[in-house]
Design a protein around this nucleic acid. Sequence first.
DNA 1: ATCATGCTTAGCCATATCGCTAACTATTCA
DNA 2: TGAATAGTTAGCGATATGGCTAAGCATGAT
Lengths: 113, 113
Amino acid sequence: MAKHDPDLSLLFHALADPTRRSILTRLAETPARVTDLAGPTGLRLPTVMRHLSVLEQAGLITTSKDGRIRTCAIVPQALDPVRTWLDEQRAIWDARLDRLDAFVMNVMKESKE
Amino acid sequence: MAKHDPDLSLLFHALADPTRRSILTRLAETPARVTDLAGPTGLRLPTVMRHLSVLEQAGLITTSKDGRIRTCAIVPQALDPVRTWLDEQRAIWDARLDRLDAFVMNVMKESKE
DNA sequence: ATCATGCTTAGCCATATCGCTAACTATTCA
DNA sequence: TGAATAGTTAGCGATATGGCTAAGCATGAT
């Protein structure tokens, strides 16, 4: 069985949370402070901090601190591995579509029990 | 903040595990029985079963039982929402790239402390 | 009828996740 | 200097995750 990129696990896991996806969407608009990000979520600061740290460890955002203010911004190319994996899978999956179609037909026939 | 598709959470979460991605890759080759999938992973059957159930709930695979044998197959279009989300994000992220570039320059300057 | 095969269920254990509060540090403003 | 602001750290509790074993239940072969 194929070896699989650990980075992909981090990325997918980071993207699996709705709050984190909101944060990303918000950051796509413009960089923002931690407090700015906490506001719309209705979550407490430490909670948001943790989400940010997950996003940062996955490489999806960068943060930098100026005085007491930490500013967060997306890292656009961070989604590239995900896109690549998706493209690879689509290529393989589509290549087998004919075989799969036959199988699905079989399944549908069988599941009429 | 935008509302986010719960299906995406299921999909991303299902994809976040290397074992599950291996299973998907294996299934892309050809449909397989549960035992066939368990073999290469080195995991026990109940463990594999759980992974399969996660994949099935995310809509990534279908399974059907013929006699005592359960056969699993990928659902090719299941990745579509992921791809759509990725495309949307890229559109937004790229649209802000100019602004972001300016910000990143700023960050790099600041982080030279 | 019996036995092996293939899957399924129940349940245990260790760890991770996601939310919180409380308390702390560090900056900025008055 | 003192107080407000922005973030951080520590740690709690409930739940989810990912692995396992043991035992159960069908089905297929002898």
